[in-house]
Design a binder for these strands. Structure first.
Lengths: 338, 338
DNA sequence: TTGAAAGCGTTACCAG
DNA sequence: CTGGTAACGCTTTCAA
């Protein structure tokens, strides 16, 4: 069961390997014609022989020779994360449509691991990388950018990084939107819980919250907890907040939202009566919770597709683009003033 | 910024390319010694030069020459699916630990697309494939198996497929467990909703349900709906079931569980009072729903890790193994008889 | 429109 | 232990 090579096809079709290579790489133009400097009849014969013999291109060989691979790498922090799971699919679909294969690998919010992965994917000759940066990963990203491999930052920005594409959410607007919803409903003591992760998306959502509060002359208060260790912190924060008569709380990530809802339930507290809540990202829990929960939705499909578009444009030599997309607010019962 | 090759390293270190290749491929044994037929001092020098020059192996070249790629492909139906998102991470971690890179691509429950993806990953010289088969994908899988690429079936079995590894859940036990819980609690009219997907996991969960029912001489009833179009069906089914005095219902997938819980909420029905429920897979919603929800949990970590182990053993020439893992039952309020 | 031939960077083989 | 050299299968000049 030897593998069929371009040479086998050439021999069988009675043409040179060059011709076969041309034909196999030719894209069909709009009229369905093969667009390559080959006699159409010859081309048809080659195509027929190739499919009869079951020829499959060997990407390793093509990649070695051409330096390209038609493969892009996507490096989220955590594939199992809800936001990235959704976006990955959009990225994959779009990339396939454009003739690219996608590689996934997660950094687990670990800068060093991100570095290793970056090296690995570059060794695999990927044509470009879509990455959600994590704290401590700047050096790794810089190295890649320096080595001229196109990079698109997704979801999280890195200050002062030149030459990279960016596809981000307008996180300040998201924070403002969420906070304004609460304030418009008449809640006054609005606080926020965030992670100490040091990533742009979180700090900008916080900035949005602060802007909205100060715009109405209200006092801001943000609680911080550590990613992965938030459980006990959050319970303490919620207890304390309710005791201090806090009206409402804004959660800038899905995991915090889920955690807070669970904590409220555990403590026997009701939203919005005891504490109004605005959550982040989409999830079944927002519609299934006792009262439905207001939340900010990111345009996953656009985020995914745009990041692929920007990256592939860069691969084709275009200048890196920066795209900021707008979030949507879904109103639920958790912000309804009695 | 030319790329450093093995040849550059060889020249700089004053040795042959062969030596460099040996050193770069040598694994460190337990005592940290490089295990290869090279003088340790020479090896150290090569290592030093390689890192000083910033040498990175070119995988395309290695793969072309050796036929191996140290890469495996994972093909779930849907990366964004909760079950697979979780399992993907485990697979990735384990594979990395064993020195393999992982490729993801989803089949979207579409046999034809599965075929295309299979071809694509094979063209990329992957050493093996972990796949969750979907209806209509048997032909594609068979072709791969015939071409001697190791394949492990994950989560779903395909009857009569020889020469593949398998890592599955004991789905019959899962169905039985769920049903027995309901019956033990005293529910009698227990029904089930399933998809018309024709995949083994669902039909076995159904078999488990039927066995548990017949074992106690009770009448079985299974409703079917179509994947992706279940919303209206489910509402009708639930309305009808409650009208007929059905006690309890078993949902064999997460998506059905979420849908039924949403429907109950929408119809103003309470679990377990109006209808007891056992769901499937893990999710925040089970703990956040008004009453917590009983559900079957799959051992994600083991499923992921075992599938990698079995696959890599096959890559190393071992015979395909079949592993069946046992689910766990988490009891919640949704099955508590008043 | 066609073909010959030169590599891409590695690993495998064989000889010393 | 070490080194030369031939592939691997493809793309890409360049020339016909």
């Amino acid at each position: 069961m030897k593998r069929i090579t371009i040479r086998d096809v050439a021999k069988e079709a009675g043409v040179s390997v060059t011709l076969v290579s041309f034909v196999m790489n030719a894209k069909r133009d709009s009229s369905g014609r093969l667009d390559c400097p080959v006699n159409p009849e010859t081309a048809d014969r080659v195509l027929e022989v190739a499919s009869r013999l079951g020829y499959k291109r060997n990407f390793a060989a093509a990649s070695l020779r051409s330096g390209r691979s038609n493969t892009i790498a996507v490096i989220p922090n955590d594939i199992s994360n809800k936001f990235f799971a959704g976006i990955s699919k959009c990225i994959e679909d779009k990339a396939h449509k454009l003739g690219y294969t996608v590689f996934f690998a997660s950094s687990d919010e670990d800068g060093e691991k991100l570095g290793n992965i970056m090296e690995a994917v570059i060794a695999h000759n990927v044509d470009g990388i879509i990455v959600a940066p994590c704290t401590g990963g700047d050096a790794a990203i810089n190295k890649v950018v320096d080595s001229k491999v196109p990079v698109v930052l997704l979801d999280r920005d890195v200050e002062g990084l030149k030459g990279v594409g960016k596809v981000l959410l307008d996180d300040v607007a998201a924070g403002k939107m969420a906070t304004d919803l609460l304030l418009d409903e008449g809640f006054k003591k609005v606080e926020m819980i965030s992670y100490t992760l040091g990533i742009s998306s979180l700090s900008e959502r916080e900035a949005g919250y602060r802007q909205a509060m100060t715009a109405r002359g209200l006092a801001e208060k943000v609680h911080y907890t550590t990613y992965g260790l938030a459980d006990s912190d959050v319970e303490r924060i919620i207890r304390d907040a309710v005791a201090r008569g806090v009206d409402a709380i804004f959660l800038p990530t899905y995991s915090l939202s889920a955690l807070v809802l669970a904590t409220l339930k555990k403590l026997g507290l009701k939203t919005p009566k005891d504490l109004a809540v605005v959550g982040f990202d989409e999830s079944d829990i927002y519609s299934l919770y006792e009262t439905t929960v207001s939340h900010i939705v990111q345009p996953l499909k656009e985020l995914g597709e745009k990041s692929v578009e920007v990256l592939i444009d860069m691969i084709h030599g275009k200048a890196p683009e920066s795209i900021i997309l707008t979030p949507t607010l879904i109103k639920g019962g958790s912000t309804q003033k009695a």
